[in-house]
Design a binder for these strands. Structure first.
Length: 440
RNA sequence: CGGGGAGUGGCGCAGCCUGGUAGCGCAUCUGCUUUGGGAGCAGAGGGUCGCAGGUUCGAAUCCUGUCUCCCCGACCA
C-alpha cells in the first residue's frame, strides 16, 4: 500500500473521550472511529488487524475440527421464548419490532439459534459429535460501554457450539477447544492464561476464561510462570488424542492460575515465589460446558445406539475478536505507539525515505517496495512528500513491526537502515540483505 | 440503574460567572525557506457555539426543556 493513496487518518492528540491507552492509540493511529456509545466504525488500518485476528481464530477452529457457518445478527423473539431466555435476559438484549410488529432482537449470543438449526437436521447419534462456529457481530446493550472496543456494545465474536452424545464426549470437545484457544492466542503473540471461571453454569470444572496480561486489565490475576514457557503449537498434541488432551487438561488444572474471584491463597502459597506472577488481565475468551440446558429446553434429542432417545450435551466457546484488537494493544505498546506482533500486524514492513527530494532514495524505496510486494510481504510505503521524522513517527504510531529507512547518507555507502519496532534496534544493511532479512 | 462531568471549525481547548454577534494551538490549503527522527516564516480557508423554546434592542454567554457523549460504581466476549 502506498500511503499517498491510502485512507489512514492519524491524530497528534487523542480525543478527550479516550481514557485508556489502547483506545487512545486506536483513535490516534486511525483504527476506529466511534459512531455511537460503544459502537465503532473500523477504518482500514483497524479492519486489516481485525481480519488478521479473525483469520487466526478461523484457522485454528478449522484445525480443531470445528465447522464454520454464519448465522444472522437479527433473531426472532420466538426462538428465545423456546429456551425461556427472552424474558430472562434483561435489558442487555436489544429488542426490536419490525413493520409487522413482530418482536425481534439483535443477537447477544446464539445458543438458541444454533440449537434450533442443528436440532432440526439431526436425528441420530451418528451425526454426533459436531462443533459448529461462526464469527459474527453481536450486540449487548451494556449499561456502560467503555474502554473503546474492549467493552463495546457491538462486538465481533467467534462463538462455537459443541454437541455430544454423552458427558465423556463433551469433555473431549471441551478439551479440543481448550487446546485450540491456547494455540490461537499464542499465534497472536500474546500471553493468554486459562483460568478456571468462578462457576460454570452447571458447576463442575468445565469452564475457563482466557486472560491476557495487561496493566489496564479489569480483574486481578495470579498465575504460575510455567505458563510463559509453554509452547502449545509445538506440543505434539493432536486433536484426536484423547489421552493427550486429558493430560493437557490435568496439567492446566495443576498449574495455578486464577482471577481475584477464584483466587485460593493456600494453593497460591504452594507456587514457588519466583514463579508467582500477579497482575491485571483482560478476558479475551471464555469456554464452558452447559450440559443439556438448551437441548433440554428446546427439545433436541437424537436416537442413541440402543434405540433410546438421548439429549445431547452442549458446550459453547467464545473469543472476543474485536476486543482482542484492544487487548493486544494494551499488552503491546510504548510511548511512541502500537507494537504489533507480526501475526496481526496490518502490514509487516514499513518503507520510509528520509529525504523526499532525493531521487536516489525514492528510486531505492520504489524498488524495495516492488520487491517486497512481489515477494508477498505486506508493505506500507510512505511515499508522501513529508519530512522523514513525521513519516517515522507515523510508522511507530501504527506499530509496523519492521521499518526500512532509506536516505541519501546511507545510500551513498549502499546502505539502508532496518529497524525493529519492538526492540528499537537499527541495523545498516545493503538493500539486498535487508530484503533477504525481511523475506526470511 | 445510582452518582458526577461535558457538548464551541477535523483534533485539543479558551470565552460563559459580569449578554454586545467567536478566539488560541495543532491539522488543512498557498507561497517561500528548509529537510537524517512529528520544521520555520508569511498568508488563506473552514464554526447557524448539540438541538428546541423562552427572556432581551441584542444570547456561545441568562432561563426551561430535550438529545448526545464521557467518567466513577454494580454486570459482561
Amino acid at each position: 500500500m502506498r500511503l499517498s493513496q491510502a485512507f489512514l487518518p492519524v491524530l497528534k492528540e487523542s480525543p478527550s473521550d479516550a481514557q485508556i491507552v489502547s483506545h487512545k492509540l486506536m483513535l490516534r493511529a486511525g483504527l476506529v472511529r466511534q459512531t455511537a456509545a460503544g459502537i465503532y466504525a473500523w477504518l482500514p488500518l483497524g479492519y486489516r488487524v481485525l481480519k488478521k485476528i479473525e483469520g487466526i481464530v478461523r484457522e485454528e477452529q478449522d484445525r480443531a475440527g470445528a465447522i464454520e457457518l454464519l448465522m444472522p445478527t437479527l433473531q426472532s423473539a420466538e426462538l428465545w421464548r423456546e429456551s425461556g431466555r427472552y424474558d430472562a435476559y434483561g435489558p442487555e438484549m436489544l429488542r426490536i419490532r419490525d413493520r409487522h410488529e413482530r418482536e425481534m432482537l439483535y443477537g447477544p449470543t446464539n445458543e438458541e439459534m444454533i440449537t434450533a438449526i442443528f436440532r432440526d437436521e439431526t436425528r441420530s447419534y451418528r451425526d454426533l459429535p459436531r462443533t459448529l462456529y461462526h464469527i459474527q457481530w453481536k450486540f449487548r446493550d451494556e449499561v456502560r460501554p467503555r474502554f473503546g472496543v474492549m467493552r463495546g456494545r457491538e462486538f465481533l465474536m467467534k462463538d462455537a457450539y459443541s454437541f455430544d452424545l454423552d458427558e465423556a464426549g463433551a469433555r473431549q470437545s471441551y478439551y479440543t477447544q481448550l487446546l485450540a484457544y491456547l494455540r490461537t492466542f499464542q499465534r497472536m503473540g500474546i500471553q493468554a492464561v486459562p483460568m478456571k471461571a468462578a462457576s460454570g453454569p452447571i458447576g463442575g470444572d468445565l469452564s475457563h476464561e482466557f486472560i491476557v496480561l495487561a496493566p489496564t486489565g479489569e480483574s486481578e490475576v495470579f498465575y504460575d510462570a510455567d505458563y510463559e514457557g509453554m509452547d502449545w503449537s509445538q506440543s505434539g498434541l493432536s486433536y484426536g488424542d484423547a489421552e493427550g488432551l486429558q493430560a493437557l487438561f490435568d496439567r492446566i488444572g495443576q498449574t495455578y492460575a486464577a482471577t481475584d474471584e477464584t483466587h485460593d491463597e493456600a494453593r497460591w502459597a504452594e507456587v514457588p515465589g519466583e514463579r508467582q506472577r500477579q497482575g491485571r488481565g483482560i478476558e479475551v475468551g471464555h469456554i464452558f460446558n452447559f450440559g443439556t440446558k438448551y437441548s433440554d429446553a428446546m427439545g433436541f434429542r437424537v436416537s442413541g445406539p440402543d434405540g433410546a432417545m438421548v439429549t445431547p450435551q452442549m458446550g459453547s466457546y467464545g473469543v472476543g475478536v474485536s476486543r482482542l484488537v484492544g487487548a493486544i494493544i494494551e499488552a503491546s505498546h510504548d510511548d511512541a505507539g502500537i507494537i504489533w506482533p507480526d501475526a496481526v500486524a496490518p502490514w509487516r514492513v514499513g518503507v520510509v525515505t528520509m529525504r523526499g527530494d532525493d531521487p536516489a532514495s525514492a528510486a531505492a524505496a520504489e524498488d524495495l517496495y516492488a520487491k517486497l510486494s512481489g515477494a508477498g510481504i505486506e508493505t506500507l510505503y510512505d511515499d508522501r512528500d513529508e519530512r522523514g521524522g513525521a513519516k517515522l513517527a507515523g510508522m511507530d504510531l501504527m506499530g509496523l513491526p519492521r521499518q526500512v529507512i532509506i536516505g541519501p547518507r546511507g545510500l551513498a555507502q549502499g546502505l539502508v537502515e532496518l529497524k525493529d519496532r519492538r526492540s528499537g534496534e537499527k541495523q545498516e544493511l545493503s538493500l539486498e540483505s535487508a530484503l533477504a532479512r525481511l523475506a526470511a
